[in-house]
Design a protein around this nucleic acid. Sequence first.
DNA 1: AACATCAGCAACCGCGTGCAA
DNA 2: TTTGCACGCGGTTGCTGATGT
Length: 220
Amino acid sequence: MMVPTRSKSINGNGDGGSNSAKKVMNRGAWTAEEDRKLSQYIETHGAKRWKTIATKSGLNRCGKSCRLRWLNYLRPNIKRGNISDEEEDLILRLHRLLGNRWSLIAGRLPGRTDNEIKNYWNSHLSKKLVSQREKDMQIHPALSQEVATPPGKTKTPENSPVVVVEVEEEGGEGKLGEGCLDPNFDVEKFFNFSTEASCGLEWANMFMELEGDLMMDDRQ
DNA sequence: AACATCAGCAACCGCGTGCAA
DNA sequence: TTTGCACGCGGTTGCTGATGT
């Protein structure tokens, strides 16, 4: 699939619609030249203050667009395509636990972006899940009621079913997927990947343990 | 071969949050 | 305390190539 060539030029929507100056911004697909300019600017000045980056780099783009392009394509160590079975499995597990919190899920998959995972989910995994549920229904017809009105299903186009695990707010703490066991469980802390504790085998073990508990809970 | 429809995905949009003035 | 800016997130749109008729 090739890069779409969106090349509309309309009034750029500034960050949060805050730019009042009516300036025609570039939109649509990024060119190689724009990529080069953006990468070069960020290399020397860093990826901060996107509005400034957008203006100073000579790109006729809004800051939001620059940020998105950098995060999803240009930043180093980015992985594109070929999501492995292990990664897919992890996405499924994390989604089960977290719901549509793509940035958190992406944080567990080095080199993957929230946008990529979201797209992958919507185009591959959600369908997989639906067909899996249909199979389950054939085996356990009692499940049909549940599936007929999936909890937290967001408004979706007819042809792209998105199964969303609705999450309950627990005392203002983070959201969890359908199987929150402990109201005191701090999802933000657990999925805070800026800490060393969140990396490596120990975290993975904790995650597997938690997920195992959720599975047990579901069966009851 | 021509047209219609589907699928994948890059990019946009609106909104919420945090922070500084 | 209020206001405005900057950033990040999740949902949605729309373009392109693939596939079906």
